[in-house]
Structures are given as structure tokens and as C-alpha cells.
Design a binder for these strands. Structure first.
Lengths: 189, 189
DNA sequence: ATGATTTTGTGACATATATCAAATGAAATC
DNA sequence: GATTTCATTTGATATATGTCACAAAATCAT
């Protein structure tokens, strides 16, 4: 098995020991992609069959609100990228786009998902993916409900310093729910 | 099987047909509770073994930020109530409290969760619960990133009109990320 | 390298919302 | 039903953040 596939599988198998058969079944639906900055993985309002795992690179997700981009999250190495809507055969609410030239594993959800009804290890594997995503969302909400932007900025800087090196501040400002001018002023202190 | 348990199980079994054996296994870890307004189900920073399903009533979740309550969500009939942290044996980040006298089903996570490794139907069942929760969180984030509070208020009023009849405006204001005074002024229009 | 494009920073001003204080209204308790 | 408690509204003022305009700096493509 490719070492990169192994990295993806290990990341979500947790305490569970997957059999070689299960690993092979998962790998059947994986491929490795090398794509350039600005490449769009998933388009808002469209249906897609794939999710992605970041081997190397940076990705952002955004939706359009009154013509302006609202950034919802960023993914770096070992993060999962995708739309929960797509997982349920619905069109994505967000556009997912590369911020750096990246190496990704694509996961064919359309083919992998049905296996969760016959293979318990795959069911638990998918469970782990969704659970990690839900924890991430909770964290995000928790932190977005803090009143002052300065606090949010400092916490993000502390928790995810890499973002500030790799993601344009314009996107980060929008993620924090403020304008780029306000973020620039907060940083001036 | 109790008709209320049936309602809970049906709500999350989706397309999946559960065997009587699985249903019985799940029911082993359910109980029905009648509790009064202000009763605290889950306390911030404490570990709890239960999640809850609302048969009748209203529930809110909040955490303390600089001594003031920040409301994170509300649950009404057929909603699930719990902390994802508790599901992973970690202390809850939020306090969960009844807003009305309520009838709930309690779910013993400590005992139910391990079954997902041996019973694929239970694994998929838990999957459905977490997935619905993640979709709910996504919705919440999607809508909290809109700039103007007035929009958020109007959308909430449109999507969840019952909340405004049953949940005090003070809590709703905090949920929207504004003060009760501001919400009151928005409503005056 | 050079010019073009994108990203970031700064200033002046407008506006939404917070804060503090108090009055009114509604609900719970005795 | 009267009294206490809690929830909501309204007013005056302060503050944080948005908006618009433009300059500076960094990055990209040829």
C-alpha cells in the first residue's frame, strides 16, 4: 500500500485495528492528486463525489454572500477537506479551493460510503472522520461567539500560527468575521 | 418496546432497517425522564455519561465567557441534546439546562458506544446521530457569518419561529451574538 | 529584472452595536 | 390577589468596526 494512503488511514483508524482486507477496500477508492494553487476542488451549489485529504499544501473553503467571499475554514497537512452535503448526495454549500500547490488524496465517497452498511470497520472509520469534523465545527463556534475580534485573533494566532504564514490575511479576516482593514489595525498593536 | 423509544430510534435509523435484536440492545440503555424547568442535565467542565433526546420540552446550552452566559443552541421536540466531548470521555464545554418542564429519553453513551465496534447497525445509528449534529453545526456557522444581526434575526424568525414563542429573548440575543437591548431594538422595526 | 497584479496598511468618517441606567411589562410565588 | 422576581423595552452616550479611498509592499508572470 502506498505510504501516503497509509498516513490517511492511520489518521482516522484510532484505536481500531483495520484488517488488510478493509485497508485494501478503502484504498480501492483513493487516488493521489497534484494540483496547483487556485484549483477548485468543489464548487458551491454543485454536487461532487469526492472528499480530499491534504498530504501537503493549503486549502480554503468559502461561500458567496452578497457577492463577497465569506471564508469558512482552512485546511493544512493531515486535514480532511470536503462537504458534508456532498456526503449526503446534496449540492455543496461552499467552494473549496487550493491556496498553495498541493498534494492530495481523493476519496471516492460515492463508492466508499455504501460499504459502511456491510463493513463495520469502514463504518467506524467514517464515524471517526465525521466526528473529528464535528469537533472542529464545535471549536469554531465556541471561538466565534467571543465578543471581541482581538480575542479571536490572538487565540487563532496562538492555536494555528501556521495559518498566518500561509493563508492571506484577507481570507483570515473574513474567517474571523471582520474586514481586512480591521484585522490590519488589530495587528498593528 | 415503548412508543417513545421507537420514536427516537426511528428518527435516526434512516433507510437502515434495524433488527429487533439491535433495537433491544439500544433500548437497554435508554430511560424516560420527566424533569422541571431549570434542571441542569450537563454541567460545564464536568464529565457525563448521558446524552438526551427531547420528547417534549425545550432545552438550551450555554457556556460562561467572562462571567456572562453565551447561549450556543436550543433544542425542542425530536432534537438530540448532549456534548460531543462527553462522547469522547472528555469534560463538557457547555452547560445544558431545561427551559421548560420536559420529557426526555436519556441515552447511556458509556454503555452504548462500545457496541459500535461489534454491531454494525449501532455503528451506523451513531453515525446518523453525529452526522445530523454536524449538519446542524454547519448550518449554524453558515448563518452566523452573515454580517448584519438584522439578517440573522429575520432568518432565525423564519426558520425557527417556535423558538421565539418558547425561549426568552435574552437567550436568543446571546445566541445571535448581540445584547438583549440590540435585539429588542431590531424587533421594534 | 520589470511591470502587472495581488495583498496589506493607513486615514477620515459613518454606522451598528455595546454599555449603563431606568421604566415598563409579564410571570412566578406566596 | 399582592408581592417579588424576571424579562423586555427605551433613552443617552461611548466604542468598535465598517466603508471608501488610496498608498505601500509583496508576489507573480513575462
Amino acid at each position: 500500500m502506498d505510504i501516503l494512503y497509509q498516513r490517511f488511514i492511520d489518521h482516522y483508524s484510532g484505536s481500531q485495528q483495520l484488517t488488510d482486507h478493509t485497508k485494501a477496500e478503502i484504498c480501492n477508492h483513493l487516488s493521489i492528486l497534484h494540483l496547483n494553487k487556485k484549483h477548485v476542488l468543489i464548487k458551491e451549489n454543485q454536487q461532487h463525489d469526492f472528499a480530499y485529504f491534504v498530504i501537503k499544501g493549503a486549502v480554503r473553503s468559502y461561500f458567496l454572500k452578497d457577492g463577497i467571499e465569506v471564508n469558512t475554514w482552512f485546511a493544512l497537512e493531515n486535514d480532511m477537506v470536503g462537504s458534508l452535503q456532498n456526503f449526503n448526495d446534496k449540492p455543496s454549500k461552499e467552494t473549496i479551493e487550493l491556496v498553495e500547490n498541493s498534494t492530495l488524496i481523493s476519496i471516492n465517497l460515492k463508492k466508499l460510503k455504501p460499504l459502511m452498511f456491510s463493513n463495520i470497520q469502514i463504518s467506524n472509520f467514517i464515524n471517526a472522520v465525521i466526528e473529528e469534523y464535528a469537533l472542529f465545527l464545535e471549536e469554531k463556534i465556541y471561538f466565534s461567539q467571543m465578543m471581541h475580534s482581538i480575542d479571536k485573533y490572538l487565540i487563532l494566532l496562538d492555536k494555528e500560527p501556521q495559518l498566518f504564514q500561509r493563508i492571506p490575511l484577507t481570507y483570515i479576516a473574513s474567517f474571523l468575521g471582520i474586514t481586512r482593514e480591521t484585522l490590519s489595525r488589530l495587528r498593528a498593536k
